[in-house]
């Protein structure tokens, strides 16, 4: 994390480890909606630990805002830990599905070549339509829309983003800290302090 909080807004990947609790999604979503902030992408999934859920949330904001939001999320009773990272700090993927008329794909060899070049994979072929799948970054999945549009793209859908933090050792060790009544210091993270008078730097 940089010492000076950049002013520019950019994409941040917020990773939230939580208990599996009804209503928690709502509680987390409200933290954003209350501040009139748009969630660009939201995914919930199991994590590496049974019973612990993992949210991946993408927002377009400044580091300062994201850090405040992260603390508000972490404040929720059923939230264990929140991390936030720029795109450079994570490995991320999104999946997209494209439905195209089968006759056009079959007729035009060019389409097949384009699909291959863009790493698309056939999921299903029916007489009337074919469904392709790609996985990648936003630009890649977007690009294929443009390519397929002239060939009668019938339907398109893209998944939420999932992201793995490059620097993370996973959550197992941390969870053991949480299970103790008196946790050690390493449960506190992502706390970047103001550098107003340079009393602290992190």
């Amino acid at each position: 994390m940089s010492e000076q909080a950049p002013i520019e807004r950019q994409e941040y990947n917020i990773t939230v480890y939580t208990e599996n609790q009804i209503g928690l999604l709502n509680r987390i979503a409200m933290i954003f909606s209350r501040r009139k902030m748009n969630i660009e992408s939201l995914n919930t999934s199991p994590s590496e630990i049974e019973g612990i859920h993992r949210f991946n949330i993408v927002i377009h904001e400044t580091e300062e805002v994201v850090s405040k939001i992260a603390r508000q999320i972490e404040k929720q009773v059923e939230v264990l830990k929140v991390y936030f990272n720029t795109n450079e700090d994570v490995i991320w993927q999104e999946m997209a599905l494209y439905k195209v008329p089968t006759d056009i794909v079959a007729e035009k060899a060019k389409v097949e070549r384009l699909l291959r070049e863009n790493g698309a994979r056939v999921v299903v072929i029916r007489k009337d339509y074919t469904v392709f799948e790609t996985t990648g970054h936003r630009e890649e999945t977007d690009n294929l829309i443009k390519i397929l549009q002239p060939f009668g793209l019938i339907e398109f859908v893209r998944s939420a983003r999932i992201a793995i933090i490059k620097d993370s050792d996973g959550f197992n060790r941390k969870l053991r800290e949480f299970e103790r009544a008196e946790p050690g210091h390493d449960v506190v993270e992502n706390e970047f302090l103001n550098s107003r008078e340079k009393v602290f730097t992190m």
Partner: peptide
């Protein structure tokens, strides 16, 4: 006692 209050409105030198 609430970490979310630190730096929320006024930037802190020492939390």
């Amino acid at each position: 006692i609430d970490p979310a209050e630190i730096d929320k409105n006024v930037k802190t030198t020492v939390p």
